[in-house]
């Protein structure tokens, strides 16, 4: 049963993403010049669009327009294939890393063929108007209900349709997830909206490319409406959160909890043997 519903939700996700991502490209009026391979466009939207644009300005990573004029072809393909190696060794790549606040490009797990195709696509899109941005509804249209739904999805109170784990299993957002907050395995996300921006967040949620998240959500993708709700929630969290409060309360609760546990154990073993001989003797110092 669970398996069947998982397949169903995966199928519906594929259909939906087909209509939302694939559709505009197919239906767009034929531009002058060569056509882009739709499979490559789809790959770009999933893997690159969360951080990069072509001609729409730098986001998390640099604007890729006319990259072929700045770098050698080989450099571009290497970076797409093995960013971690390049970021470690290549001086140009390191400089860029510094420029973009040390946010490292994750390894995408692409084949040489795919990397070459993407390089071609970027060059193509630099010259001709090819729409590479995913279908997108800005978070400004979100209602309070969307925010609440996003919060529930984040904390796991509402189950994701794709069956993926709740965000708070690994992430924390201030003022969400109850007293103890969320997980600390991955990044604290209170101000993620400010860092990634609305579109970046959208891509990051719909097609996560972060090392662990990539694998976890590979078979359990978020649906577009869920992504929208989460964005709405993270936007709200970004705006309403103050600076990080001192969590002294956790320490106090911890200490009190320890005392309570000790008292309970003491009560449970109240009749334990505490030495026989001493009970027979007069108290020290008293006249016997």
């Amino acid at each position: 049963m669970a398996n069947a519903s998982a397949w169903l939700s995966l199928a519906s996700t594929l259909v939906l993403s087909g209509t939302l991502i694939g559709a505009p490209i197919q239906e767009a009026p034929a531009p002058e010049g060569p056509q882009a391979d739709p499979a490559l466009v789809d790959l770009y939207v999933r893997k690159c669009a969360s951080c990069h644009t072509v001609g729409k300005g730098a986001r998390v990573g640099p604007d890729l327009k006319d990259v072929d004029q700045r770098r050698e072809r080989r450099w571009i393909v290497d970076l797409i294939r093995e960013p971690s190696k390049m970021l470690d060794r290549d001086p140009d790549a390191r400089k860029l890393l510094q420029e973009f606040n040390g946010v490292r490009m994750p390894d995408l797990g692409l084949t040489a063929e795919q990397a070459n195709g993407l390089a071609d696509l970027i060059v193509l899109a630099s010259r001709y108007p090819i729409d590479l941005s995913p279908a997108f509804v800005a978070v400004t249209e979100a209602t309070a209900e969307d925010v609440a739904r996003g919060r529930d999805l984040f904390t796991g109170r509402m189950r994701q349709k794709g069956g993926g784990p709740s965000c708070s299993a690994c992430h924390t957002v201030q003022n969400a997830g109850g007293f103890f907050g969320g997980g600390t395995l991955a990044k604290e996300l209170t101000h993620s909206f400010a860092v990634l921006g609305d579109e970046g967040l959208d891509a990051a949620l719909a097609n996560p490319s972060f090392p662990l998240m990539k694998d976890v959500f590979a078979d359990h993708p978020l649906e577009p409406d869920e992504v929208f709700a989460l964005r709405a929630f993270l936007n709200d969290a970004n705006r309403s959160a103050g600076t990080d409060p001192d969590r002294l309360d956790i320490l106090i609760v911890g200490l009190l909890g320890t005392v309570v546990v000790i008292l309970i154990l003491n009560a449970a073993w109240a009749r334990r043997l505490r030495g026989v001989r001493h009970a027979f003797l007069p108290k020290r110092g008293s006249q016997s």
Binding site: L273, G275, V276, R277
Partner: peptide, 10 residues
């Protein structure tokens, strides 16, 4: 935690 052990003082 056997609560009935004699202690060395016993």
């Amino acid at each position: 935690h056997n609560p009935n052990f004699p202690v060395i003082d016993d």
